[in-house]
Simulated scan of single mutants.
Amino acid sequence: MNICTNQTRLQIAEKSVGSLSSLALLRWALIIVFLWFGGMKFTSYEANAIAPFIANSPVMSWLHSLFGIQGTSYVIGVLELSTAAALILGAFQPIFSALGAAMSAATYLITFTFFFSTPGVAEVTAGGFPAIGAMPGQFLLKDLVLLAASISLLQASFQGPQSNIQRP
């Protein structure tokens, strides 16, 4: 007799599809990205580089008025390093697998909006959108891939309803 349960359980993403899962590669690649980018947010170079993206963002522009350019970069750096920490812990604990992947997905959902809010994304000399400039257009387009990696980890962190076979 088949009994389906409607419970969703958390699991470590890469354990959802086998011990040699390519999801582990996604996790550790995202960790490197978040450690690197998060650490860079504590430099004035990076703070000034991201300032135009933040200033034009309908989601994040308020941060500059509250924390200033460097302070905003610090806040983002702490969030990115926290995401890296959650992703690291997620290799060992199911709750952190889901949390880290969700934090990563949220990051890339927000930064992907910069694609639409940052001036200069469309390359006017090439006819405008969909032609995009190397900076900032192509730079921002990579976030689509990082978002897909994050969502893949997030989906794999949830174990859907199971079919259990019970015998009398």
Rank of each mutant, 00 (worst) to 15 (best):
N2H: 14
N2Y: 14
N6R: 11
T8R: 14
V17E: 13
S22N: 09
A24L: 15
W28C: 04
W28H: 13
A29S: 12
I31P: 10
I31T: 12
G38D: 08
M40K: 09
M40H: 08
S44K: 15
A47H: 04
A47G: 13
N48P: 01
N48H: 10
I50F: 11
I50C: 03
A51M: 00
A51E: 05
F53H: 06
P58W: 09
V59K: 02
M60I: 06
M60Y: 08
W62T: 10
L63M: 15
L63D: 04
H64P: 01
S65T: 14
I69R: 11
Q70I: 10
Q70L: 11
G71D: 10
T72I: 09
G77C: 07
L79T: 15
L81C: 10
T83S: 12
T83I: 08
Q93L: 10
P94L: 01
S97M: 06
A98T: 11
G100M: 02
M103A: 15
M103E: 05
L109R: 04
F114L: 01
F116E: 03
S117E: 03
S117H: 11
T118N: 04
P119I: 01
A122I: 01
E123W: 05
T125H: 05
G127C: 05
G127T: 08
A134C: 00
M135A: 04
M135Y: 12
G137R: 00
Q138V: 01
K142I: 05
V145P: 00
A149S: 11
S157Y: 00
F158I: 09
G160M: 08
S163R: 14
N164W: 10
Q166S: 09
R167Q: 10
P168Y: 06
